[in-house]
Nucleic acid binder design. Structure first.
Lengths: 159, 159
DNA sequence: CGTAGAATTGCTACATTATAACCTAAGGTT
DNA sequence: AACCTTAGGTTATAATGTAGCAATTCTACG
């Protein structure tokens, strides 16, 4: 399960290295290649818990001597999205790492207006909602995005 | 309440004229002006129950002799969004009319991949979800978007 | 090995969506 | 009329995302 609220302070280096090893494992399992660009993009996205825009990645890749034209980034993003290693936050045109790429799951995010951090919403609620809706409306659901903004618990207390 | 599923065939002229009179009433009530461009944009959006892109409106406005540069359309859209007369579907970069602009409400949409129609999700479910999440996460929710895609009941039966 | 085929990346150009900035016009008020 | 506020016109540009094709790297198989 994804954390629903970030601990005030956490070992973020650990966050990143965990994400990278999960990614490596998943790629091996699926027989696909976590190439340097792909790995670096994932790492950059995991640099924070704030959604990162595609064009924010370009200069950072350039610094590392990678090619830095939009297609490079978007290809890497597409690859990572496909594997579930990252999610796209459509209302921000931005991307964020996922903690549990192994299990397929409908995605939802809470994004704090103050600190900018995004946390994944608990699966149960989202799953509950969409299965309820599917039955009630008689529809077949293929995809769903849920993006909630506001003030997170920590920022609320800090103010 | 918004219809959750479109009747197979409905008097769509009525849809449009209802929307326009609601808009007129709301504008009078709020003391703002439903100018020709704004009215025409609203009408164009209500031409179907499919989300309409901003740039789709430009040539249609041009046909009617209106100015047709992006700012014109976006200003009209912003005005209509502000009043709740339309909603934005972020995952499609598109806009759609709202049946009940009077009452504030969190918005959610189901969009059919097949026929393209978008229908507003029942308020109760969305409201239920976000109030549950707000309490559980200890957050203050300011905004939420819920966009579900799949196959609607009618298209499912037709296939 | 070595070579064919597939996957990946480099690169240029371009498409789509949205906004900034500044000026003109229209409508409402005294 | 003089003034003020709101709305619209116009040009340019920002931000996000893709198409298409050539060059390279990897992989599998003989």
């Amino acid at each position: 399960m994804c954390p629903v609220s970030l601990p005030h302070s956490h070992d973020h280096g650990r966050c990143i290295s965990d994400a990278l090893s999960r990614a490596k494992a998943l790629c091996e399992q699926k027989g696909v290649r976590l190439t340097p660009v792909r790995k670096r993009v994932l790492e950059l996205i995991w640099n924070s818990h704030k959604p990162t825009g595609a064009y924010d990645l370009l200069p950072q890749l350039a610094e590392d001597g990678f090619n830095s034209a939009p297609p490079t980034v978007y290809r890497a993003l597409d690859f990572l999205l496909e594997l579930g290693l990252i999610h796209r936050i459509t209302s921000f045109n931005a991307y964020i790492g996922c903690n549990h790429p192994e299990e397929a799951h409908p995605t939802g995010f809470f994004i704090c207006r103050q600190c900018g951090n995004a946390t994944e919403l608990p699966n149960e609620q989202i799953t509950g909602l969409i299965s309820q809706l599917a039955e009630q409306l008689g529809v077949v659901i293929e995809n769903s995005t849920h993006e909630i903004t506001g003030i997170c618990a920590r920022c609320r207390q800090a103010s």
